[in-house]
Amino acid sequence: MVTPPKTIEVQNLRLAYGPKEVIHGISFDVRRHEILGVIGPAQSGKTSLLRCINRTIEFTPGVHLQGAVRVDGEDVQKVRDVFALRRKIGMVAPLPVGLPLTIYDNVAFAPRCSGMRSRSELDGLVEQCLRQAALWDEVKDRLKTLGTKLSGGQQQRLTIARALSHQPEILCLDEFSIAIDPVTTMRIEEVLKELRKEMTIILVTNLVQQARRLADRTMFLWNGEIVELDRSDVVFSEQPRDRRTYEYVNGIFG
């Protein structure tokens, strides 16, 4: 079997906030066009990990990072144009954030930031992203109204549309379903199944079943260490390699 090329390589990553180390030297790869599920209880370093990948970790004062995160073979710490790096990675935060702009401007913000000015190009891109995020039909008649006035579930899909608006190759979702209802969650999961054809997805979730439904491989992160990383059918089987995985997945601890 041919192993697909690696999109992200994490090598011996250590991360500390001040004196407190939260990620204790983890290594793993994310392959091209796979969905990697990341499960684990709160405080296990899932969000910090994502923030290392797009380097928004550096907005937090006092962080100390060791090891390497490579995106397409390039060490992100050495990337000159960090904004280009972030454009390559779509990031969806746990709580929906509609920017206090119109729905249209929410999606057009990133392309405008990178210099896209043509109205027709922007129109096309906005429509495409909103369609991909399964929001277009609900908002196409009111693109000029405020994004913040949408419902929570709609705002989360707007957030996804915004994350797609800079045409990323990687999409990171950080517990995207935490603040939205199950029906919307299922709709977004359908969206992700479509998107996996064209991009690599890291799905951080504390809904174990969500990882089981979507992820090709699943990583169980606990207290800043990888307990297990394997094909989802192994992780969620009766006999994963580590007993703790079985217990966490089946709700016995965590």
Binding site: F83, A84, R86, M91, A93, V97, F109, A110, C113
Partner: peptide, 25 residues
Amino acid sequence: RPFREACWNVGATRWQTIRAVVLPN
């Protein structure tokens, strides 16, 4: 702050963030 983080996440610079979101509000 989440507004700022949302902007940074899509590759906006600090100044673009300030202009688009922070100052108007």
